[in-house]
Structures are given as structure tokens and as C-alpha cells.
């Protein structure tokens, strides 16, 4: 299995080359964001011009997310005198962000999101329109993925709770699989069709 090494931030051209099924290793800075964070981005940044503290948060996020990646993850993080270490950091189910994802990709100029379980048609269209990919990490492989998080650069809105905060992390050799590419292909869509065919056969018996 060949591994495609990519360093963050990622150029549009490199994203366009990726196809469903490609194995990717990522190195660089990414940001975790899940349910509360996506809703917050939508309501406080996209729907209105961010002001004050929100503007500061926006500027910080934009720096890391333009041509960057959001990781759908609610980690277990150890704190020792203000120093944070990721202990367990597997992906969370991405489909919950389906209502927001395309807008968030467009707004920050994201090149990808990492999660598990895949996303729907709206996001697939968003990936095509804005040249980004959906990367699938192995659900539950949290201790292993935690090892690829080399440093926690910061955390924003910890008041959302440990799982929901924006964690800014530096990763090395973070491995995932492209399951939705920027050309309209989705492994998840294919799998639903294929398994539906098998289900229909089983139910016909």
C-alpha cells in the first residue's frame, strides 16, 4: 500500500490529485472541531461579522485553517501545570456536521476534514466546489492516533468542555484514507449502494 505524504498547509493542486482509496500521511498543524464548534462557527462567524473576542478567535483559526484541516475529534487530554498532552484522540462520527460542513469549508478555505463514517451529498458537493477532501481515520484507534499528536499548541473555548473545545495540534505521520475526493467520488455512497443490493437479495429470500 503506497502512502502519500502531505504537509500542512496543503496546496489545491495536491488535493486535486487525491482519489478515493488513497492512503495519506499528514504532518503539520490542524485544529479539532466537532458539534459545538461547528455550530459556533456558523452562528458567530458565518452568519454575522465576528467582533471583539470572536474576531481574535477567528483570526487565530483562520491562520491554521486556510488551506488547512479540521479534525472531528473530542480527545482525552492530560493537563500538567498548564501543559496539555493528547492521550487518546480517535475520530468522532462526522455526519453530525453535515448541516454545517460545506459552509465551514468555504468560509475558511479548508482543504479537508478528517473524521469517521463519511458525510452526505451536501458535503460531497462542497468538496467538489471548494477543492477539498474527506479523510477517514480509524474509529477507536485513539491511543495510536494520540501518538501522532506531537504537541498541543493551544486550546480555545475550553468552556465548551474537553471534547468540544478547539484544540490546535501539531501532528506527525497522522494516517488516514481518502474516502470522499474533490471529484465527486465517495466510498460511503458506493458502499451504501452495494450493501443495499445485498440487503435486497437477503430480504427477497
Amino acid at each position: 500500500m503506497t502512502l502519500i505524504n502531505l504537509t500542512l498547509p496543503i496546496a489545491e493542486g495536491d488535493i486535486k490529485k487525491l482519489k478515493v482509496g488513497d492512503n495519506v500521511s499528514l504532518t503539520g498543524v490542524m485544529v479539532t472541531a466537532r458539534d459545538v464548534a461547528h455550530k459556533y462557527i456558523m452562528e458567530h462567524f458565518i452568519k454575522e461579522e465576528p467582533q471583539g473576542k470572536d474576531k481574535e478567535l477567528f483570526d487565530l483559526l483562520y491562520k491554521h485553517l486556510h488551506d488547512g484541516i479540521i479534525y472531528h475529534c473530542g480527545p482525552v487530554v492530560k493537563e500538567d501545570n498548564g501543559k496539555y498532552t493528547f492521550l487518546a484522540a480517535g475520530p468522532t462520527t462526522s455526519i453530525r456536521e453535515e448541516p454545517y460542513q460545506t459552509d465551514v469549508i468555504k468560509y475558511f478555505g479548508l482543504r479537508g476534514v478528517i473524521g469517521k463514517g463519511g458525510m452526505g451529498d451536501k458535503t460531497l458537493q462542497g468538496l467538489m466546489d471548494h477543492k477539498a477532501v474527506y479523510l477517514h481515520a480509524i474509529g477507536g484507534a485513539a491511543a495510536l492516533i494520540g501518538k501522532s499528536v506531537k504537541e498541543v499548541l493551544g486550546v480555545e473555548r475550553l468552556d465548551f468542555g474537553m471534547p468540544e473545545a478547539f484544540w490546535i495540534i501539531r501532528v506527525e505521520d497522522f494516517q488516514c484514507v481518502v474516502t470522499m475526493d474533490s471529484h465527486g467520488n465517495s466510498l460511503h455512497k458506493d458502499m451504501i449502494e452495494r450493501s443495499k443490493g445485498e440487503l435486497d437479495k437477503l430480504l427477497a429470500q
Binding site: 475529534c73 473530542g74 480527545p75 482525552v76 492521550l87 487518546a88 484522540a89 480517535g90 468522532t92 474509529g139 477507536g140 485513539a142 491511543a143 494520540g146 471534547p163
Partner: peptide, 11 residues
């Protein structure tokens, strides 16, 4: 996870 006594899954 077993060797290093880490949570198998973050959830």
C-alpha cells in the same frame, strides 16, 4: 492501550 494504560478509544 494495554501496554501504556491509555484509553483504547477517546470516547
Amino acid at each position: 492501550a494495554k501496554v501504556e494504560q491509555l484509553p483504547i478509544c477517546q470516547d
